[in-house]
Simulated scan of single mutants.
Amino acid sequence: MSKPIIVGITGNRRVNPETGVLRDYVGHGFVEGVQRAGGIPMILPISSTTTARQYVKMVDKVILTGGQNINPALYGQENLATNTDDDFFEERDLFEIAILAEALKEGKPIFTVCRGTQLMNVALGGSLHQDIENHWQDQPGDYLSQDMVVAKDSPLYAIYGEHNRINSFHHQSIDHLASELEVIARDPKDGTIEAVQFKNSSVPYLGVQWHPELLIDYCPVDQKLFDFVVNDL
């Protein structure tokens, strides 16, 4: 019997507005998606960069999740956004950059979602649009508000086909693409980058801009994405 794949999932930290209690957490869809795919999820709470290295050594693959916006200072800009004024978390940014660096060093596959994909682009030298329009839906996470077109030579094509619908919960998006990345899916209306991968690397990497963890109970194709990440990435 083969050893189950252990997937490290980066956590977030916020204060519960009702109780004032500080909590570390991940969206349950990440845990459920990995478990359904046969993997073992391990939540990686925000910690020091030294601990980040230890975490990566404990897991087989890494998922970076969504959450706070990324401070524009990390890509050499001032904060110009109007809707995202100070929803930044420097400790998380630095911790997850350390996670990425160690995973790349160790050659461990990486899957990133929304903020995680933006952070990978920034960590590799790219930049972000700070406040785009028409990509934050007011409806629940299972509502499919956007279209995407997928490159035929990408791993997403076998899962989603050339055209599919996705959800959308982001104010920031990739602007200048890091030189090591290539685009494999876009929004056909405004060109927003919806998925990326490495051009040439021995480390498997896939990054998406939407939130598949919110769709696994409604769209079987999004569970297939987790199946791919756990078993084939």
Rank of each mutant, 00 (worst) to 15 (best):
D232V: 02
M1D: 05
T82A: 14
Q118M: 14
G8H: 03
K61F: 11
Q77M: 12
V196L: 03
H171S: 11
L74A: 00
P220Q: 08
Q137H: 05
L144G: 01
A103L: 10
G191T: 08
R92S: 09
F198A: 05
A101P: 01
D131M: 05
I6Y: 04
K108F: 10
H211K: 03
L44W: 01
P17C: 12
Y218R: 01
N71R: 09
V26P: 00
Y218G: 00
F111S: 11
P212I: 06
L128T: 02
I174V: 15
L206T: 04
L119F: 15
E78P: 00
E106W: 07
L181N: 03
Q197A: 06
V230K: 00
M120Y: 11
D87A: 04
E18H: 10
N121V: 08
F198P: 09
T19L: 10
K189N: 15
V21C: 01
A151Q: 11
Q139V: 06
I46H: 01
G67C: 11
V208Y: 02
S2K: 13
M58W: 09
K199N: 13
N121D: 13
C114P: 14
L22D: 03
C219I: 10
D147H: 10
K105Q: 12
A52Q: 07
N79F: 05
D86W: 11
R36Q: 12
F226L: 10
P17W: 10
R23Q: 09
S168W: 09
Q54M: 08
R53V: 13
D86L: 09
Q146H: 15
I174P: 07
D175T: 02
F88W: 11
K108Y: 08
T112N: 03
K3W: 03
I9E: 00
T117Y: 06
Q68H: 08
T51L: 07
K57P: 00
E18Y: 10
Q77D: 15
I174M: 02
A52D: 04
M1Y: 06
L181F: 08
T84S: 12
H163V: 07
R36S: 02
H170K: 08
L104S: 02
L144N: 03
V122M: 12
D138K: 13
I6G: 00
M42Q: 13
K3L: 14
H211S: 07
I5Y: 03
D190Y: 06
I166G: 00
T49S: 12
I193V: 15
I159V: 14
F30Y: 15
R23E: 15
A195W: 04
A195Y: 08
V34S: 10
A98V: 13
R36N: 09
R36F: 01
Y160E: 03
G76H: 10
A101F: 01
N83K: 14
R92Y: 02
M148N: 02
V7F: 03
D131S: 06
A73K: 14
G116A: 12
K3M: 12
L104Y: 03
A81G: 14
R165E: 11
Y218E: 01
E96T: 11
D222S: 03
P45I: 00
M1H: 12
L64S: 13
P155Y: 13
H135D: 13
L74T: 06
A98T: 09
Q35W: 07
M1V: 11
I110G: 02
D147I: 00
R23F: 08
S48K: 08
K189Y: 09
Q223S: 04
R36Y: 01
V62Q: 04
D153S: 14
